[in-house]
Design a protein around this nucleic acid. Structure first.
Lengths: 335, 335
DNA sequence: CGCCACTTGTAGATCGATCTACACATGGCG
DNA sequence: CGCCATGTGTAGATCGATCTACAAGTGGCG
């Protein structure tokens, strides 16, 4: 029974004793259907278990499917955004498919475009604005966690500049004067509008404003496990900082791992993350962090995209609410 | 430029001065293409940036896409399986799309079937074997973390019975005599072949074998945050158990949350999880758990599915390696 | 009674690919 | 020189839907 046993519109038409066009009209809820015909067609659909082929639809017009590009499957901050998107799409008649991919997002985005989705939500922290503009000229596009001032695609992001400054001020207020910043690779912060680039910029600026240029120290890691080793190296250095601002929670947790393993605490090295993922509130971790309402980010992205699919062309750039959540991983420095 | 500006095979054919069929042959690497024609077509493809439409392909035959049904986006154990699947598909010429869905998996699976993917990897802990058999008769299907003895679909799972017994023996060896089990809702353990059902069964059996029927205590939660409240209730009860076996790490972490908030430790209530997600090894959590190689689960599922797509019809049922990882969340009971 | 408007349903083109069947060259060989 | 095998390319049907154009039927109204 394996070989292509799918029920088609033709089968339904035969079963109901009407034409294909009639069936099409019924399922699209189009004009020109008598109550009688509707009933017969609907019962035939029911009986045969017919389901319209998205592929066949896509080839003619809309697939009623939107794509979500996700480059880090295991990053809980991204999962939170994704959950918001999934919630946001409910009841809209559209469905969501996710393509896992590389950090550039290229491969995943291509896969979704090839599927002929009606629109795209992407994170793609390493894609260049030029490439995205080009993409946006061919398909409705919304970017999450980027601040590009594009006219062709929308963006939704947290106020990363403000968030990072909240973090820095919190640390300065506690009395820290030597604060390091832990972020991703050079490429990850290369795009001016990227969230990590903005956070890095705010860190550098706040250090300068407070006259601490000489203590600026930026660490970079490729993977999360790298973050652990980088911290170990930092703690072993001659004159370690008293606080560390990690550009997102997943990195911060690895920093905490190193700190705890040494038997140290927040007075030795205060740690701040970003995103307020679920684990941050766990008493075993208790991470001070910034909540940028990741789920709201996803929900809004979907809403903006649907607006665009339905004809809006003027770009919108939104920001979500921010909130510094102070927990046990930060404290005044011991000295 | 927005309106359907996609480059089609026809455009490429025109550009290269050949027929559509010729272009098709080149991209499918089919027989009957002269080196000269190949070159011209390839350069035309390059010049126009042509990408074949998966939708159009799917309608005729294969989409070279496989679907992954994921009902809990934020569950790190599932993310781990997903990562394995994503790794396993690399270099195979297929691509992976994920559909987020409800616990029944119905909606997500339907969405993937409607997309006309070539095969399906599903977790669907609450689907009935009958429904899955029916599904498997229409599309190649592999189930993860289920032990159904189906002849129409494959399964890959950890040895859940053995794993749960490892946990129980570890707790008995430490001296625990009153052990509770925390699992999901009734529906989640209703399917006989489901991983949670098997773990529950092993718990009940081990309690009985050790003559502790009277201390059997099964708690159920709907959400992860529920697990926290359930634990609080348990700790407040008249004669609380000295150990708790949670059916997966995410629940265990919430149990630990309650334990830690009370200032209690492993001697008061030992906690064991299942899955060995990344956070389990964090010193702030340090959870004893069972590692069932979640990434391997995903990798194997993909491999089995591709075998099936390529013609295998005899069902295979595989199990992954198991390993009990003892950490700080378990200790001998205080009394 | 005849014309028009409206309702209800169908035929057939179309979307972008795949794939079978065939046409046309070319050249080897008896 | 004629026949056939081989190599190269194309025409056209096909997949499952959408959607325009139109045919047939019904009833209102002057």
């Amino acid at each position: 029974m394996r070989p292509g046993k799918a029920v088609t519109m033709m089968d339904v038409a035969r079963e109901a004793g009407v034409s294909r066009a009639a069936v099409s009209k019924v399922i699209r809820d189009a004009y020109g259907v008598s109550p009688d015909m509707r009933k017969r067609v609907e019962s035939a659909i029911e009986r045969l278990g017919y389901r319209p082929s998205v592929a066949a639809r896509a080839i003619r017009g809309s697939s009623f499917t939107i794509g979500f590009e996700l480059h880090e499957i295991e990053n809980p901050a991204l999962s939170r955004i994704l959950r918001g998107a999934a919630e946001g799409i409910e009841g809209t008649g559209y469905r969501l498919v996710i393509a896992p991919g590389d950090p550039e997002g290229q491969h995943a985005i291509d896969a979704l475009v090839d599927l002929r989705v009606d629109g795209l939500v992407a994170i793609a922290p390493r894609a260049t604005p030029a490439w995205l503009e080009n993409l946006a000229s061919r398909i409705p596009l919304v970017l999450v966690s980027r601040h590009d001032p594009s006219v062709n695609y929308d963006t939704v992001a947290g106020g990363d500049d403000e968030g990072a400054r909240l973090v820095m001020r919190h640390l300065f207020d506690l009395g820290h004067r030597s604060i390091a910043h832990l972020t991703r690779s050079e490429e990850a912060t290369a795009q001016e509008g990227g969230a990590l680039a903005v956070r890095l910029g705010a860190y550098l600026d706040e250090m300068a404003r407070n006259g601490r240029e000489s203590r600026i120290q930026v660490l970079r890691t490729l993977s999360t496990s790298d973050a652990y080793h980088a911290t170990v190296g930092l703690l072993d250095s001659a004159d370690p900082p008293t606080a560390l601002f990690a550009s997102h929670d997943d990195l911060a947790f690895e920093v905490l791992r190193a700190v705890r393993e040494r038997g140290l605490d927040a007075s030795d090295l205060s740690v701040v993350g970003y995103d307020n993922v679920r684990f941050a509130s766990h008493p075993g971790l208790s991470l001070t962090t910034v909540d940028q309402s990741g789920d709201d980010l996803g929900r809004r992205a979907v809403r903006l995209l649907l607006e665009r699919i339905n004809g809006r062309t003027a770009a919108k750039h939104e920001e979500t609410e921010l909130r510094l959540v102070v927990r046990g991983s930060t404290a005044p420095p011991r000295r």
